[in-house]
Design a protein around this nucleic acid. Structure first.
Lengths: 335, 335
DNA sequence: CTGTTAGCGCATTCAT
DNA sequence: ATGAATGCGCTAACAG
């Protein structure tokens, strides 16, 4: 009850010599209002510094003008970029984002989702996360929903994502073409669909080239930098032979590169590296990281745009976003 | 109007054979209710999956149960950590965070602030930003306010921050003690108070050691990694002599280190480096970065706790958070 | 085109 | 201790 502005449409109605309804009309633009009255209202609004009470509006109109955004911990370069995109995409609209964090933990995510729904968000954007596809489908029935960084089967048209399988396939293929035979793979958390798909792409590319993926060359990581370091340590400790490393994201690629550096192994002279994401930081790798570019910010913007369209009733069909293999000097040809 | 749950207290009142008022009472715990009725109500709530309508609640009660958080672009390691702390601190409460982004741009920040206020947030946490102290003071009059990562004069007791001057002083002092004479400084954006204070600390430490800061050794950066690269390039291009670099944050320190690497300059053998923030990534620097640790997550949590206390009416007095000079192998003694 | 009349779902008086 | 009655500020029919 600390809000200053106790000005209501009633006040401005009196000041403008019209009825509350008329005021409401110019506010919502739900009907034509004679120009002079309209101006009077606008003036009164300005003078009294009127600010609509969002609660009353929500109660009466059933709109919250809020978009719920389910995140998974701030701090991940890739997801942060998506969030920035969403923020930017929403900027132009009247909707404001309400965040709730799932912390990559299903139970918490569940609660976060509830919170968002309880807040009566008009639309929902789910960024990554571990909520089962099925659950999301259900939610999608009740509220306009867009999912980013993930493909929900049954909700493809509302998913903003890249073809991880294809991208990983191409990256691996590129290494093979360059003459690499032994390609190590640092995986992401396989319970994440994208991590799973990327690994599949890697495996398939090898298979198509007549190679069977050597399980000993596949090391599990967790998408964070340190796991890239450990993965390489692991490979080296086990005495594995490999001339290239494909990491499921740039952070792990960076970690891998540091581990190699410490061991005095040159890149790309001794070992080539490919990452995934094209995070700005990767450009600073020495040598610059060859990687698969994902348009994170654009995906976020697209998600925002899509949810807005959905709310406007326009049926949306978001295209699968294209990835791009960015070839830099961290891959040596032949070996 | 898409919300599924059309269950109102009226429904559960009927199901529990009591009046709306009684239901409201057990909901708000605003008065004693006989145990059996209370249970009946609770049961009905569970069975009907009742969810209070937050709009109605807000309208009638004047509470939004929301905490506004003014951010400045996701993606900064330091600020992201603060946000995580805030989220975590709020987790245990009934309040949920509503974010609005200022993008480090005063005009946008202004709008973001308005949005938050228009949403009738019960409390406000401002993370960094460029809003004038005075404006914040005014806002502080109208709504419970906590500022993080910044010291607002006139609002010290509601500011969660570290003593940047002192920290920078100590870091510089440490370099001096180690025998360094020519200490380059890579500054942050000086319009940010903390960047300003850090530079002052650096200058003062030199002064107290009988040195006058050499303006040619101070290079302006923007807190981002690339500016660290450019700063070093600049110093080298201009032919400056220096045996140590103090960067206003770890990202620029990292950039500086990469630039040195490219030039074949060894760290710490040829040049020593100290950063600021102790970002996890800095641990991966080769050699590990000597830096000033700021407890970002803890600050976020403290801010959340503080705002909750404020809302409960407890007067809050947040302590100045301690920084810590983390000495790793990136500083060589004497030169 | 515009004023009048009802609620929206809940917290909060009042009475009892 | 509990039910009945008000009103929060606004939108949305409803009549003119």
């Amino acid at each position: 009850m600390l809000s200053k502005n106790k000005v209501t449409i009633q006040d401005i109605a009196e000041k403008a010599n019209v009825s509350k309804s008329t005021v409401s009309r110019v506010l919502t633009e739900s009907a034509y209002v004679t120009e002079d009255k309209r101006e009077a209202v606008l003036r009164a609004i300005a003078e009294l510094e009127y600010q609509p009470n969002i609660f009353a509006r929500g109660l009466a109109g059933g709109q919250s003008l809020a978009i719920g955004v389910l995140t998974q911990i701030f701090g991940s370069p890739f997801y942060d970029a998506i969030l920035r995109g969403i923020l930017q995409g929403l900027q132009v609209s009247d909707y404001s984002p309400i965040f709730a964090d799932g912390q990559w933990r299903p139970e918490i995510e569940q609660g976060a989702l509830q919170t968002l729904l309880a807040r009566r968000v008009d639309g929902l954007i789910v960024v990554g996360g571990a909520t089962p596809d099925q659950t999301l489908c259900q939610i999608g029935e009740e509220v306009p929903l867009i999912v980013v960084g993930r493909r929900i089967s049954g909700l493809e048209s509302q998913s903003v994502y890249v073809d991880n399988f294809e991208a990983a396939y191409q990256a691996t293929h590129y290494l093979i073409q360059a003459g690499h035979q032994q390609i190590a793979y640092i995986a992401g958390i396989l319970s994440h669909q994208d991590a799973f798909d990327r690994r599949e792409g890697y495996v398939q590319a090898l298979k198509d080239a007549g190679n069977v993926a050597n399980q000993d060359l596949i090391v599990g990581g967790d998408f964070r930098r340190h796991s890239g370091v450990l993965a390489v340590e692991m490979l080296l400790t086990r005495g594995q032979t490999f001339s290239a490393i494909f990491a499921a994201n740039d952070q792990m690629a960076f970690g891998a590169r540091l581990a190699l550096f410490r061991r005095g192994i040159r890149v790309p002279d001794d070992v080539s590296i490919i990452g995934f994401d094209d995070q700005p930081d990767s450009a600073y790798m020495i040598p610059p990281l060859t990687t698969v570019r994902q348009p994170a910010v654009e995906m976020g913007e697209a998600a925002a745009q899509a949810i807005l369209d959905l709310l406007k009733g326009k049926p949306v069909d978001v295209p699968v976003f294209p990835t791009q293999l960015i070839m830099r000097e961290s891959v040596a040809r032949f070996r």
